[in-house]
Design a protein around this nucleic acid. Structure first.
Lengths: 138, 138
DNA sequence: TTACCTGCAAAGAGTTTGCAGGTAG
DNA sequence: CTACCTGCAAACTCTTTGCAGGTAA
């Protein structure tokens, strides 16, 4: 299959063996147009429900961390009990919908330029990210 | 003591009994000029080391959550394994020093106005917060 | 054949809870 | 006296780890 080959290649070039489990997770995460936001728990549920193949939770954790270390995923912290991953690995901003616990990407042109006027001597800025919390009107 | 009376009053008016433990924690958190950023673990260590009185970890958790629910503390998520609390409960921005794992408040005039140009129908914006990650030059 | 990977179960870390005894009002 | 609070230990959740068997190259 064309797509599988793509993922086999992707894994191989980054030094990860293209196992069945990793290819399955690749397809789920990267074979889509839009960016995908997920928690490990959500991902594990999708894997359990949507595929015949069962992947152990330990392998899901291992794979997600391997992908994160290779730069295929970005980790996002919203609150203490929700640790999200994002298939969009660029620096970008987010809406967090407090009513549904869902993340939505904000693109650069959705947010005006952010000016940080304070400088800490001896430190440099690594990233500037905005989190906009939203909720239902009522 | 004048300060203690202040905290007794503060606790009482919010429906919390002014126990010895709560007053001790109040003094540690709120009897200072600058805002204070802490994790439960850090707070517990300070309590263990700096006071003769021992407060059980469960009580520290209970108290911090009670204070948060009463609006005396704000919770801030930086990454999966660091859950911070902040004595500055207003909406504001932060530096996070990745070299030392420390938070620094950014005041409104330290950050230019942030314009969110995207609207999600039926949702309203609850907060807009910027996290600026910094690290040592090298 | 060798190094790497998976899956299980156990271990860890951080947090919460049930309950008995203690304290504020 | 009553409701609330504390401290302990156990329980829980999420994540990581050790190890035996399996798979890729």
């Amino acid at each position: 299959m064309n797509n599988n080959d793509q993922f086999v290649e992707k894994l191989r070039t980054s030094g990860l063996r293209p196992t069945k489990q990793r290819i399955t997770i690749c397809k789920l995460l990267f074979d889509r147009k839009d960016t995908f936001h997920f928690t490990i728990n959500k991902l594990n549920n999708i894997l359990k429900n949507s595929f015949n193949e069962r992947i152990s939770l330990a392998t899901v954790y291992n794979t997600i961390h391997a992908f994160k270390n290779k730069g295929y995923l970005k980790e996002i912290s919203i609150n203490s009990d929700k640790n999200y991953f994002d298939t969009n690995v660029t620096n970008h901003h987010h809406f967090f919908n407090e009513s549904t616990n869902e993340l939505i990407d904000l693109h650069d042109n959705d947010v005006g330029k952010i000016k940080i006027k304070k400088i800490i001597p001896g430190k440099k800025i690594k990233s500037v990210e905005v989190l906009v919390k939203i909720a239902n009107n009522n």
